[in-house]
Write a protein that binds this DNA or RNA. Structure first.
Lengths: 153, 153
DNA sequence: TAACTCACTTGCATTATGCAAGCATAGATT
DNA sequence: AATCTATGCTTGCATAATGCAAGTGAGTTA
């Protein structure tokens, strides 16, 4: 018995710190980009994620979608109009990542060189609550209009 | 010429989307844990990060500290009392990640099983602005009292 | 029915990470 | 002064994750 036993609640995780738990769910280079695609761009299909701009490999994409489903952040529904297609959609747990996404967006827009237009960022910074609510509303009502288009760069 | 040329502003990055840029800075399993250690626990030294609880390997730790410095999120200062020690400290750019950290914390505390005490989380959820300001104040004034201790689990 | 689209899977090369050990310098102990 | 210890790393090597290209099978369209 050299190692200290880990408590049962950990379930294989490194620690019970909530920040750590968050990172174990989506602390990689791709998961949050997929969540962004679903949350603000209205992307739904494998194809759309694949062509999203950052160039994710298809094996990684499939892997991340599976993991996000397993974590209850994403779920699938069949496309009623095309049997080949699957729609990936955020769950409530997933859409509740909107504040995280917004803060990531605002931080980078302020401290890094990005393609985000200044005036849009200023509005978002000054109206955090309203922005989050609008994102959630579109998700709830399945509003097909994306909240933000991809910033062209 | 098969591939579309990438614009110069990208500088080797996958896209200019601010969410993507954020993830390129700290979108891995360790960077945000180090930022957490500095931000809310008051950790400063290599040793403290190493023993922080999640078990980071020393080569990865050294690598991440270097990357965070290169990104302007962390900087070093010598320990005046012990020449072997280096103090790692958040820059202003780094401390401005407090809202991101808070939202990560709140999300996991709400949607995952964590070691975070309910009443603390409820307070933080209801007082986001004040919490962020207090974290920043401690950083500004170099208040040595940690904002949060590691949650025991 | 032939071609095509979509959502994957597979194989293989490259890169990142994990683990143990080592090393240099500063400080403490004798 | 010599030795021992603490700290902040680096190195070597095994394993895991990722990137890339190609392939597969079911569903759709011509």
């Amino acid at each position: 018995m050299v190692k200290k036993g880990k408590p049962e609640c950990r379930n294989g995780s490194r620690s019970g710190c909530p920040v750590n738990v968050s990172l174990e769910r989506f602390g990689d280079r791709w998961s949050l980009l997929l969540i962004r695609d679903m949350m603000v761009r209205g992307y739904k299909t494998f194809k759309e994620f694949e062509e999203s701009g950052e160039g994710i490999a298809t094996n990684i994409l499939a892997n991340r979608l599976t993991r996000l489903q397993a974590a209850g952040i994403v779920r699938t529904e069949p496309d009623p109009e095309d049997g080949r297609r699957v729609h990936y959609r955020l769950t409530e747990k997933g859409i509740e990542l909107a504040p995280v996404m917004l803060e990531l967006l605002l931080w980078a827009a302020r401290w890094e060189e990005t393609a985000a237009p200044c005036e849009v960022m200023q509005y978002m910074e000054a109206n955090r609550g309203a922005v989050v609510e609008e994102v959630k509303r579109r998700w709830r009502e399945r509003d097909p209009v994306p909240f933000l288009p991809p910033f062209k760069d």
